Computed example of a mutant assay.
Amino acid sequence: MKLTDLAAAWRDEADLFAKRGQGEMAEMARSFAADLEHWIRLHDLQQLTIREAAEELGLSYSAVQKRIADGKLSNAGRKSRPRVRRCDLVGDVLALRVQAD
């Protein structure tokens, strides 16, 4: 189960609580879901250094640096201080797997 699935499940639970007359519980479940979705967005948009991105991808520093230079990974920072958004790593991992196959 992904975290987004968990947030959706909590929203479903909230609807069930509301249907059964448990308004406060429904609001609490909706609040939990909204907090989780907010955290997921912040996590996905977090800008990583090349070193951090390399660790998450399981690549060397220079390999990530080259992927940025080649335009295969978007630079979310400055040219002199490149950064990679965590959400961009997901697509890059998929591209790397396709190349490996």
Results as ranks from 00 to 15, higher is better:
residue 99 Q to R: 15
residue 7 A to C: 12
residue 72 K to D: 10
residue 47 Q to P: 01
residue 49 T to H: 01
residue 14 A to W: 04
residue 8 A to I: 07
residue 84 V to A: 07
residue 85 R to E: 15
residue 90 V to A: 13
residue 45 L to I: 04
residue 85 R to G: 09
residue 13 E to V: 12
residue 65 Q to G: 09
residue 81 R to K: 01
residue 99 Q to V: 05
residue 96 L to K: 08
residue 26 A to V: 06
residue 24 E to A: 11
residue 35 D to H: 07
residue 85 R to H: 03
residue 77 G to I: 02
residue 62 S to Y: 10
residue 44 D to Q: 04
residue 76 A to N: 04
residue 63 A to N: 04
residue 5 D to K: 03
residue 64 V to C: 03
residue 82 P to Q: 02
residue 76 A to C: 03
residue 25 M to V: 08
residue 99 Q to I: 06
residue 22 Q to G: 05
residue 35 D to Q: 14
residue 82 P to A: 06
residue 57 L to I: 13
residue 79 K to S: 12
residue 59 L to W: 06
residue 64 V to M: 04
residue 19 K to F: 14
residue 84 V to M: 08
residue 15 D to E: 14
residue 34 A to S: 15
residue 92 D to W: 04
residue 64 V to F: 02
residue 91 G to I: 14
residue 32 F to P: 00
residue 24 E to T: 13
residue 77 G to Q: 01
residue 77 G to Y: 02
residue 48 L to D: 03
residue 69 A to F: 07
residue 57 L to G: 06
residue 5 D to Q: 12
residue 43 H to R: 14
residue 61 Y to C: 06
residue 70 D to R: 06
residue 101 D to K: 14
residue 44 D to C: 00
residue 78 R to P: 00
residue 69 A to W: 08
residue 56 E to Q: 14
residue 68 I to M: 04
residue 63 A to I: 05
residue 32 F to I: 13
residue 81 R to L: 15
residue 83 R to D: 07
residue 79 K to C: 05
residue 17 F to A: 12
residue 35 D to M: 12
residue 96 L to I: 15
residue 71 G to N: 03
residue 58 G to C: 08
residue 98 V to T: 10
